[in-house]
Each structure stands twice: as structure tokens, then as C-alpha cells.
Design a protein around this nucleic acid. Sequence first.
DNA 1: CCTACCGATCGGTAGG
DNA 2: CCTACCGATCGGTAGG
Lengths: 195, 195
Amino acid sequence: MTGGYLKGRIRREDILAAAVTVYGEVGYHGSSLREIAKRAGITHAGLLYHFPNKESLLAAVLERRDALDAAREQLQARPGLEVLRRYLALAEHNVGNPGIVDLYSRLAAEAVAEDHPAHEYFVRHYRMARAGVLESFRAMADSGELREGVDPEVAALTFIALMDGLQVQWLTTPDEVDLVGSLEFYLRSLLTVGL
Amino acid sequence: MTGGYLKGRIRREDILAAAVTVYGEVGYHGSSLREIAKRAGITHAGLLYHFPNKESLLAAVLERRDALDAAREQLQARPGLEVLRRYLALAEHNVGNPGIVDLYSRLAAEAVAEDHPAHEYFVRHYRMARAGVLESFRAMADSGELREGVDPEVAALTFIALMDGLQVQWLTTPDEVDLVGSLEFYLRSLLTVGL
DNA sequence: CCTACCGATCGGTAGG
DNA sequence: CCTACCGATCGGTAGG
């Protein structure tokens, strides 16, 4: 028999995809292994064969999300305008994938609790996001692309916060929120150059 | 026997306060009537004597929050700078009451789902918040207090979104986020007048 | 407001 | 990867 490993990897992918959907719908705490397993076409005991417990499945989902984001948008570009452009591209991609936004918003709110299994992940996630954007704003300040009086530190924090806040409002009332346009508006108000 | 009604009202208050705490900690779906009841000093069946089911308790919590906010901050002031100042005061108040911020952030993320019992509440809540701030930005645009090129519509949406996004990040890493200062920074970037 | 109970569902394990 | 099971917990009701 060949392909045993391949089959295992495919099955794991099915489970992860189902978990992403369910987490987005009902959050991590609201999810059940039985529901996720059913959507992946196995029993919940079968799921536990691939992931030893509920938390390990969440960890795998978060790891995969980071890997996919990094590969697609390359948010680690050279600091500067290009990094901000890639965040806009990420927002644009998200508009076509509300499920991903759902997942992220729900988990971020849950993970505020210090004993939530994803808490440390989001602490790191926010720190890295702020640091990356901060570097870019600093570089742009040095080259005169940042409006006078704009503190790069605060600009970085508010940019990330605005993205998150817009996403929740967009999910709640999709027809009344222009996700990408609002971010562009904000960036233009900070910069001396166009996007 | 006198005071029976008073006692009932006090007991209801105890239950509502306990519910606010628990919703903030674990969200609505993650909460249990037994846990809320225990903190209020009764059994879960006793709780159901005051609130017929789980959803009615949530509805009462949301009603009370609106009533308290309206009474304290009077966010319905005459459109203009004063309204924005009261939002800053609300943010300041929230910094001293993380439990309230917890409750709001958790429920807002959960209620993105259309079948969540608080969904309609948040649709209304966002619409009203945006409309109130929009009116103020429009009034300020008429009197030259809004920077040129700033669309009042987008400014209103982004201001509310920024508040929400900052709250989640502040709850996650309290020492690394200046909630009030960041909002002031943003408002200053939109206005021609000081706060 | 409580005791006592209901059916349903949960995460996880045993054993194959 | 499944069947079968465990103890725990859930929202809600009956009956007082």
C-alpha cells in the first residue's frame, strides 16, 4: 500500500477546513468536535485520531492560517508603502472570504481571556502586526511620505485596530460598510503620497 | 408583607450584574444559567423564575446597558464636537471598567451570526452610533471644523470601528494600547479645531 | 424561589 | 478510523 501518508494529510486538511468554518460560525467554545467531524465526513472519535484533543485542533487551524496568509500576501515585504498596499490587498481578499473574517473576529474576541488556548497566539499576532506596520510608517516618515505630526507608533496601532473594527461591523451589516474603501480613506489621511 | 416587589427588583439586579460578568468572561454561548445563578446566590431554576429562558436574560442585559450608557454619557447631545467629546469620556470610563468592554466585544463578535439572539440589537446599535456621529461630523463640516476632503460618512464609520478594534487589542495587551490617546489622535487628524 | 428530574450534548477513552 | 461507552454539564420543566 502506498499513499497512506498522503491520505492522512488530505484527511487532516478536510478536518482543518471544517474547523475553520465551524469556528467562524459559533466560535471555538461554541464548536463541538462532533459537528466538525461530521462536516469532514468522519466520527468525532475519528477526528481525535488525527488531533489528540480539542485544543490541538485549534492550534493547527491558527498555524495554518498564518502560513497561508504569509504565503499569499507576503506581509513581510521591505518596510514602506508596499507593506500597506499588501494589507489593502489582504482586506480585498477578505471581502471575498467572509468565513475567514468570521473565524478571526470570533477567535480574537474570545481569546481576550488570558486562559483561552489562543490567547498567546493573539498577543503575538497583534505585536507582530503592529511592529511590521510601525516599521513601515517609520520608513515613510524618514522619506517624507508621512504627514507631519503623525506619530508612527499610534498610526500603526490605529491602522490594525481599524481593520479589526471594520471587519466586525462589515460582517454585521455588509451592505453598509465599505471595508477596503474605508481603509484607503484612513491611509490617505496619514500619507503625503498616493496609494 | 410589604417590599415584595422591591426585593424582586433587587434580585433581578443581582442576576443581571452576574450575567454581565459571565458574558464578558465566556460570551453568551459559553455562559450557563447555573454559573450565573450561582454568582447571584440562587439556583438556576430560581433564575428561570425571574427570566423565563436564556435569551430573555440576554435581552434584559442589553436593554440595561443601553439605558445606563444613555443616562451616563448623554450621547444624544446636540450634533457637533460635544458628541465626540462624550465618546471620549465613554472610552475613559471604559478603561476603568474592562468587564463592560469584555461584554460588549464578546457579544458583538458572536452576534455577527444572523441567528444570534443579539444580532438585531447590534445591527440597530451600529446604525444608531454611525448616524449620531455622522450628524456631528456633518455639522462640523458646515462650520469648517472638519478638515477639507474628509467625507463625514466614512469618518463616522471609521471612528466607531476604531473604538471597537482598539478595545479588543487593549483587552488582549492592556499595557501596549492607549485607548483614549489613540482615539484623540485620530480625531485630531480629522478636525481643524482642538478637543 | 427550591428539589428533583428530563433528554440532549459535550470531550475524551477503551478496545479493536 | 469506528463502535460503544464514561462522567459531566447543559436549558428547561413539574410540582410544590
